Amino acid sequence: MPRRQRSIATCLLLSSAAIAPFTALAQTPLTVRIGQVGPTSGPAAHLGADNVNGTRLAIDDLNAANVLIGGRKARFELIAEDDAADPKQGTQAAQKLCDQQVNGVVGHLTSGSTMPASKVYNQCGIPHVSPVATNPRLTQQGFKTSFRLLANDNAMGDALARYAHSTLKLTKVAVVDDRSAYGQGVATVFKKTAQSLGLAVVDEQFTHDKAADFSAILTAIKAKGAQAIFYGGLDTQAGPMLRQMGTLGMGKVHLFGGDGICTVRLPELAGGAANVTAVTCGEGGSSIEKMPGGLAWKARYDARFPGQYQGNAPYGYDAMMVLAEAMKKAGSADPKVYGAELFRIDMPGVTARIAFDATGELANPALTLFQFKDGKKQALN
């Protein structure tokens, strides 16, 4: 072979050898491990399971779509942890995920668990998107790793107090909370707004998230002539509270609450009590009927997880999709690389169009109030 031909052949061989590793790398799947934390045991287990399901459905959709990150086909894996809605257990779960060097986290669910966990994620540099934790302090800590997909408690407590004053024309209310970060947060805002509007807060009481007997609290509130009770807590206490209100002759007393009580399961937890019709509750975001493509998405969810829908799942789904979109835009699943892209996200989701402000709050959060009629939750707006 002539020298020139030998030189060309040698160059081609060397080029092929150089390209081969990059080709092999591009063909090697990229494993993306996503942590998901919420209560799958304890009083809020039904809410936590709903969120896990939503995240799992998103991961199934992403894997079916053959997503490319940095030119490599991504394979998403879910690592689900139970925090039982307990702050200590939530912190332990967060540290475990940090130690495992997951690529991102969907969670946590309750504010009481999310707040301390957010500090752990900030220290290890892993972004987390909380689907439904609403305590305003979450995004006031200055962390660049914390995001949420719902209106916070400032908006929720304010809206419910204004509804009590302007629509129902109430003048006397009582406030009860379960001493959790979530319960105290939303109850404090309701009280502050109610008083600013001229409503008299005639009594304040406290309970806890495992309580079942509210007779002493309710008897004290009844003696003060309250026309309504605002409860900061979860449906697992609001249900029995409603039933006991009926027993004590308080069937016409309104019960207000945030997304913690605003679940499709509330009538069941109230034992079918007739005064469930006196409940007005709120949720950040739109009702499933008004979400972009919400009903079509729910049909897919129900087919995969029959009878398990509680209302949180679409937010778990969108939280996962937001993380994946930031990774695609950055061309990397490395938290230190794609984290900044979360602040530049502007994408359609199941729940809403998703974009964050500089603190990690949803840029344009919606808020929906609900009541119950014939045992079913119905949107007022």
Rank of each mutant, 00 (worst) to 15 (best):
A220G: 14
A211R: 02
F230H: 09
D235Y: 13
T247H: 14
A216T: 15
Q227E: 15
Q237V: 10
Y231P: 05
L234Y: 09
R243W: 01
L242I: 01
G249N: 07
A211Q: 11
I229F: 05
F230V: 14
K210M: 05
A228K: 11
I221N: 02
K222L: 12
A223R: 12
A220N: 14
M241Y: 09
K222M: 10
A238M: 02
M241A: 05
T219L: 07
A228D: 02
F214D: 01
L234W: 04
F230L: 13
P240S: 13
A238N: 11
G233W: 14
S215R: 15
I217E: 10
A211G: 07
P240G: 13
T219R: 08
G246R: 15
T247F: 06
T236W: 00
T236A: 08
D235M: 04
G249Q: 08
K222N: 03
Q244W: 03
L218M: 03
K222S: 04
T236H: 08
A216D: 00
L218I: 08
P240M: 04
A228R: 13
G225K: 15
I229V: 09
K210S: 13
F230T: 14
K210N: 09
G233S: 10
G233I: 08
A212R: 13
T219P: 00
A228Q: 03
K210E: 05
L218W: 09
Q244M: 05
M245D: 03
K222R: 15
T247L: 02
I217S: 06
K210G: 10
Y231L: 07
Q237N: 11
R243V: 06
Q227V: 06
L242W: 09
I229N: 10
A238K: 12
G225S: 07
I221L: 01
A211L: 11
Y231S: 09
A216L: 14
T236K: 00
K224T: 14
K210P: 03
A211Y: 03
A223K: 15
L234F: 14
S215Y: 06
G239D: 10
K210Q: 11
D213G: 05
L248W: 12
L242Y: 10
A220M: 02
S215I: 07
S215T: 15
L248Y: 10
L248I: 01
A220W: 01
L218A: 01
P240C: 04
R243K: 12
G246C: 05
Q227T: 13
